[in-house]
Amino acid sequence: MLSMPSLNVPFTEEEMEGVRAAAAAEGKSLKQYLHDLGVREMQRKRFVSGAASWADKLRGEFDEAFPDEVPVSQRDRGTDAA
């Protein structure tokens, strides 16, 4: 396990109150809550990146199957408007 040196992250009193309440609502210590928050954000970003990549791979097939759903700005008109 890696350990980071103690970090001093400033919070306003109002922000800190909210963070403490959120930690308590999950039944976690403040330290565990903040750790899990960082890990969840990393996992969320990884999921969003994978989902976007998957959607990009299927976009052409979807656009062919549902041509009316393709945004007007992305439709291939084939000819220029007169």
Rank of each mutant, 00 (worst) to 15 (best):
A25T: 06
G50R: 14
M42L: 12
V39N: 01
S73V: 10
K57P: 00
R44D: 11
V39A: 07
R59M: 09
F66V: 10
L58G: 10
R40Q: 05
S29W: 02
S53P: 00
A55W: 01
W54A: 15
E26P: 02
S3F: 02
E69Q: 11
R44P: 02
M42Y: 13
W54I: 07
K28D: 05
Q32V: 14
A23N: 10
F66R: 14
A21P: 00
V70C: 11
D68V: 06
E13N: 05
E15H: 02
L34E: 02
D68T: 06
R20A: 01
A24I: 01
T12V: 03
D56H: 15
H35K: 09
R59E: 12
E69F: 14
Q32I: 11
L37E: 06
V70Q: 06
L37S: 12
L30M: 07
T79A: 08
L37W: 04
E61I: 13
F66C: 11
E17F: 01
R59L: 05
A55T: 08
R75F: 04
R75D: 04
P5N: 11
R46D: 10
R40E: 10
E69R: 11
V39C: 05
F47L: 15
S6F: 07
L7K: 08
K57H: 09
R40Y: 06
K28H: 01
T79V: 05
A21C: 01
W54V: 04
E17H: 01
E61M: 04
F62C: 09
S6L: 13
G18E: 00
G78Y: 05
Q43I: 07
E64M: 04
S29R: 03
A82G: 09
S49E: 13
T12N: 04
N8A: 11
A51H: 13
A51V: 08
F66P: 02
E41A: 12
V19I: 09
T12W: 03
W54Q: 12
E15R: 01
E15G: 00
K31R: 13
F11Y: 15
G60Y: 02
A65K: 14
A22G: 03
P71I: 10
K57E: 14
D56I: 09
G50Y: 07
L58N: 13
K28N: 02
S73P: 01
K45N: 07
S29L: 04
H35F: 15
V70A: 09
P71A: 14
E69I: 10
E64A: 10
R75K: 15
A21M: 03
D68Y: 08
R59F: 08
G18H: 00
A65Y: 05
A82Q: 09
E13C: 00
M1D: 14
S3D: 11
A52C: 06
R77A: 11
Q32A: 15
G38H: 04
V19H: 02
A22D: 03
R77Q: 12
F47H: 14
F47D: 12
R59P: 00
H35I: 11
S6E: 15
G60L: 06
E15V: 00
S6A: 08
Y33P: 03
K28Q: 14
P67L: 05
V19K: 02
R46H: 12
R40N: 11
R40A: 11
P10R: 15
E14K: 05
